[in-house]
Write a protein that binds this DNA or RNA. Structure first.
Length: 806
DNA sequence: ATAATAGTTCTTTTT
DNA sequence: GAACTATTAT
């Protein structure tokens, strides 16, 4: 993403390149010097530019060394972009700054200081799935479901407590000991905490909370960082939670004279930093945010942090950026109208000088697929008229909405990529391979060890595992030792052999881990365990895809080693765990981006499709019961709208398939908040409802699809046995549109080498009959341009489109 | 110990 | 529709 700053009327050709082209408010935000500064930056107001120029200014004037700057961003991607843009402005002078996310910065600090409080620097990080797995074990052991406790309740509550900086001790003091459920939860919390400590692991929330704990418990440690960071800048401040807020508070605290003396004795340079009392004054703090874009309350983000900033940090300067350099006035009018329905907000009105622009386009489909087809058609049309695919994005509220979109996009030969969602690293086989790496990096972690114990199958079942656990408990030794001493467990010779050889493999690889490159460690583990070998030998076609995924992981480690020649296994594991959905964005060349509204924050596109604008989806059903839920959902909608530069499309469906069943959907309440004259409805909710004169293409399609005629011709021409052909055909008859649900194996339908040329007549599941106008592309990417009798012109990917020659 | 089958429950958003 | 659980049969 790039934010282009238009020269404003007020700012003229001042000589300073850092403020050239800025409006007066932006200029002030770059140049203001003081203890604390709040920049209230409306969507598209050029805040990234302001922030980078502010940093560049500090460096260029020698007010700060790079090492004295700490900038916190929301994603690693944003951090990388900021670093790049600062480098662009000041060149080499920017090296040594800390620009990272809260989590990455805390990992960096914790790795250095872990030994201060009972961890080693090789700690691992548990992602949400890992901590859920751990909680699951604990709940089962305690029979907690008897009291109605679930894993998601427990993990949600623990996360919330940690975000509030509560630990087991402080929580135990505030509960009602007569409520067995609360007592049970406390026990779960206690065991969870103990297990993490034993495993030498932190969960996501710990990374922040434990850093705060570290600073509070060890003032001399905190003093080092307070001395070091003189300028702290925080982006997306409205999304900070209490723990993150506290971290900032700790970092900006002044250092008392006696601690400065201690630093000095430790060899740190402090002389010119001391103030009158001999201490070091607190770092200067700049925060940037927009309370209208606060969308992470569910994760503990506290909007009060930004609203009450002036109270928290007295004598703060506040600068308001309201001029928008991104969107057309029509889009901004819609955004302003929507957000003004949130009553408890500070007044703010975005404006632009670029003009009204096109109207917002609205569309109501009969089904989610119909809606997706609309999106695909509009994208094709935009592409034809010169908009690059990479400048278009499709947003949705829930990840499950991708299914229909992907299916239609594949058929329509629209190149796309999904950001976030079921990520590469969440796949079971990747988690398996990663667990091998974790056991080598952090032998204390029993969770990872359990995961790989019987993967691939070695005949080590639950019974064997409990036997080992029992040995470990009685000998007060880690699980790994139980494996090394498998012969003492009194198990069968086959199992014993399997255990000892796994233990040997892990020990052998571990011995090389300090020096060997990451990809060699991984390859050794894969070769030694037979992980890929077993998958390759399987008849299940999905296993082949899984094997390829693991190969891909090896490639990733090679790439990592190339980019970080000194990178250790721990560095690799950390990086992988902390990547965010939007971090994946890098080479989006030539593809449409699909993502949730949450990952869309901070990005911008020429054309934006906001899909599923329905009640129970946006606002989401779950938000209704939460305090502040509907307002937060409205902000989410607002965030989506304001991502668009030129074109905005709002779409919804009359019916939506959710968890198997088809439900009737109602238009979102937020649609009515947009002035009618701003929207040009291609098919309004009313029109779709009446099923009257407008072309009911989806209904046509249904009838066509159900006539049973299509099943007569084989469409799987190669690679599949007759059994799978039958199944595919049967499935196609009843539910033709769910064929692509399985993305592990790629596309199930395969027209193979179907020959088509201009003039042929074909029949399509959705669009009925039509005539081929042209065929372009080669091989698997052959595309047919078809003029359908009822549905107009479409482009189809021949290989996978549900079509037949007639 | 494992593979296959049938039944269950749920899904918001994410570092 | 998927992911997990419980119950079978091998």
């Amino acid at each position: 993403m790039t934010i282009v700053l238009e020269p404003s009327d007020a700012a003229g050709g001042s000589g300073d390149p850092l403020t050239a082209g800025l409006n007066p408010q932006q200029k002030e935000a770059v140049e203001y010097r003081g203890q604390s500064l709040l920049i209230v930056a409306g969507a598209g107001s050029g805040k990234t530019s302001v922030l980078t120029r502010r940093i560049a200014g500090l460096l260029a004037t020698r007010e700060a060394w790079p090492s004295q700057i700490l900038a916190i961003t929301f994603t690693n991607k944003a951090a990388a972009e900021m670093r790049e843009r600062v480098a662009h402005l000041v060149g080499q002078a920017g090296e040594g700054m800390w620009i990272s996310t809260f989590h990455s910065a805390c990992v960096r600090i914790l790795r250095r200081e872990a030994e201060q409080f009972g961890f080693t620097k090789s700690f691992t990080i548990y992602d949400s799935a890992d901590s859920r797995a751990l909680l699951k074990r604990i709940l089962k052991e305690l029979d907690a479901d008897q009291l109605g406790l679930t894993v998601s309740m427990a993990s949600g509550k623990i996360s919330k407590l940690k975000n509030e900086l509560s630990d087991v001790e402080s929580y135990s003091r505030q509960i009602n000991m007569n409520d067995p459920q609360e007592v049970m939860f406390l026990e779960i919390f206690r065991q969870y905490t103990r297990e993490l400590q034993r495993a030498n692991a932190f969960d996501f929330d710990d990374l922040i909370a434990q850093t705060v704990y570290l600073f509070r418990a060890f003032p001399h440690v905190a003093a080092q960082y307070q001395r070091r960071f003189r300028h702290i800048l925080v982006d997306e401040y409205q999304d900070t939670n209490h723990a993150q807020y506290s971290l900032i508070r700790e970092l900006t605290r002044p250092v008392q004279a006696d601690l400065v003396d201690e630093l000095e004795r430790g060899g740190q340079f402090v002389q010119s930093m001391r103030d009158g009392s001999g201490g070091i004054p607190g770092a200067s703090l700049t925060v940037v945010g927009d309370s209208d874009q606060s969308i992470y309350a569910f994760r503990g983000a506290d909007i009060r942090n930004i609203v009450e900033f002036e109270r928290d940090f007295p004598n703060s300067k506040v600068i308001l950026l309201e001029q928008n350099y991104r969107s057309t006035q029509n889009i901004l009018d819609a955004a302003n109208a929507v957000i003004s329905n949130n009553f408890d907000r500070q007044a703010k009105n975005l404006f632009t000088t670029v003009g009204a622009g096109s109207k917002i386009v609205g569309f109501t489909g009969y089904t989610g697929h119909d809606e997706a087809q609309f999106v695909a058609d509009e994208i094709a049309a935009l592409h034809e008229s010169g908009t690059d695919y990479k400048d278009m994005a499709v947003f949705y509220r829930t990840n499950s909405q991708t299914r229909a979109l992907e299916e239609i996009f594949i058929r329509s030969a629209i190149p796309y990529r999904v950001l976030g969602g079921t990520k590469f690293y969440e796949r079971a086989e990747i988690k398996d391979a990663m667990a091998y790496l974790i056991t080598v990096a952090n032998p204390a972690d029993p969770l990872a060890l359990r995961r790989i114990m019987n993967v691939p199958k070695r005949g080590i079942g639950p019974a064997t595992e409990t036997a080992m656990q029992r040995w470990a408990d009685t000998n007060e030794a880690p699980l790994r030792d139980a494996m090394r001493n498998a012969d003492q467990l009194g198990l069968g010779p086959k199992v014993t052999g399997a255990i000892t050889s796994l233990a040997k493999l892990l020990d052998d690889v571990q011995a090389t881990a300090a020096t060997a490159p990451v990809h060699e460690i991984l390859s050794a583990l894969i070769a030694g365990s037979g992980l890929v070998e077993v998958l390759r030998a399987s008849r299940d076609p999905q296993d082949e895809a899984r094997a390829e995924n693991i190969d891909e992981l090896v490639a990733v480690t090679k790439e990592f080693q190339k980019n970080n020649p000194d990178g250790t296994l721990l560095d690799f594991l950390t990086e992988v765990t902390l990547v965010a959905a939007a971090d994946d964005l890098d080479d989006t060349s030539g593809t449409v981006s699909l993502m949730t509204l949450h990952t869309a924050k901070g990005l911008e596109y020429e054309a934006v499709f906001l899909t599923g604008v329905e009640e129970d989806l946006l606002p989401h059903r779950m938000s209704a019961s939460e305090p502040g839920g509907p307002s937060e959902e409205r902000r989410l909608f607002y965030v989506g709208i304001t991502r668009a530069r030129q074109r905005l499309f709002l779409s919804l469906a009359m019916t939506r398939a959710q968890f198997g069943e088809v439900n009737v959907a109602m238009p979102s309440r937020y649609l009515q908040e947009i002035p009618v004259e701003l929207i040009d409805w291609k098919q309004s909710p009313g029109m779709a409802n009446s099923r009257g004169g407008t072309q009911p293409r989806a209904l046509n399609a249904r009838r066509e699809g159900g006539d049973g005629n299509r099943g007569a011709t084989p469409r799987a021409s190669g690679g599949y046995g007759s059994g799978s052909y039958d199944r595919a055909t049967a499935a196609a008859k009843t539910k033709p549109k769910t064929e692509w649900a399985n993305r592990v194996t790629g596309t199930v339908r395969d027209n193979g080498d179907m020959e088509l040329e201009a003039g042929d007549r074909i029949s399509h599941v959705d669009f009925g009959e039509g005539r081929v106008m042209a065929v372009t592309g080669i091989g698997a990417r052959r595309i047919a341009e078809v003029l359908f009798d009822g549905a107009g012109r479409k482009k189809l990917l021949i290989k996978v489109a549900p079509i037949e020659k007639i």
